[in-house]
């Protein structure tokens, strides 16, 4: 099938951190995503784009086994984080989630203070070092420190939506992950807050690998190095099975897509 196109490997020294091999995802009997094979490169930003319901989030959430939380979800095929097969029975999803962090569509700070939001993850993971320093460095990395340094003990709910989302990014950084999965991280934010999140993503890719689901094609073209275009299987359109249509460097996907469907979607003819 045409769906499994790997990005053209230009430089051999680009390390692969996440990958799937013929991975299919099911909710009860329904196939949500079929037969995806792709490699995600370390310290790059990879975006998943495509129409609603094509399984972008399902694929994203398989990389830290968040799909386990949905009753009836199951997987066939392989999903790898580095050299670990994530769905092998010996893998503890709790450990995986410390290494593969996640930021959600809607900011979801805990109903605790700003400080406690950051400190929660390190505490449950038995962090031994200096918590104050860790909180500060995470807030710095998330470009939030200057705005909140005088009110660390205030409720996180007092922050604006964009600040809350940056707090959630800082919170995810506090458990020292390698990868950040972002599920439409800016879709609930205004344009200015969105730009700040995008700037932040660019800063973060020095240290982290970022995989981002987005509905916003401008965003994908602005921030990502690689883009995966997903869509509905055209042969079995009634079943709404998500497939990977094309995966390549972002610049190629947006300027010279190989697939007609990608081109139609990029140019706004459907989706």
């Amino acid at each position: 099938m045409e769906a499994n196109i790997l990005p053209s490997v230009k430089t051999q020294n680009e390390e692969i951190i996440l990958s799937t091999k013929n991975a299919s995802f099911f909710y009860h009997d329904k196939t949500a995503v079929k037969n995806v094979t792709l490699n995600i490169k370390k310290n790059k930003i990879t975006s998943f784009i495509g129409p609603s319901g094509c399984g972008k989030s399902t694929l994203l959430r398989s990389f830290n086994r968040m799909n386990d939380l949905i009753p009836g979800a199951s997987v066939e095929g392989d999903v790898y984080y580095k050299d670990q097969n994530l769905y092998k029975s010996s893998i503890d999803p709790v450990k995986i989630r410390q290494q593969v962090g996640m930021v959600f569509q809607k900011p979801n700070p805990f109903p605790k203070s700003i400080y406690e939001n950051i400190a929660f993850g390190p505490k449950i993971n038995q962090f031994q070092g200096n918590m104050d320093e860790l909180v500060e460095s995470c807030l710095m990395k998330a470009a939030l420190w200057d705005e909140v340094k005088d009110k660390l003990n205030e409720s996180a709910y007092a922050l604006s939506g964009g600040q809350q989302q940056r707090l959630c990014i800082a919170r995810a950084l506090a458990v020292f992950p390698d990868v950040l999965l972002m599920d439409e991280p800016a879709s609930a934010l205004d344009p200015i807050a969105t730009l700040r999140i995008e700037d932040l993503m660019n800063d973060l890719k020095e240290e982290y690998t970022i995989v981002v689901v987005t509905h916003n094609m401008q965003q994908a073209s602005r921030v990502s190095d690689y883009t995966a275009f997903m869509s509905i299987d055209r042969d079995r359109i009634d079943e709404r099975i998500g497939v990977l249509v094309e995966y390549d460097e972002t610049i190629k996907i947006f300027t010279n897509p190989k697939n007609k469907e990608t081109e139609d979607y990029i140019t706004g003819r459907f989706g």
Partner: peptide, 13 residues
């Protein structure tokens, strides 16, 4: 549910 997911995503049991 989003609060639970946020905590699970940090490696909480």
């Amino acid at each position: 549910r989003s609060l639970r997911e946020g905590a699970y995503a940090l490696g909480a049991t």
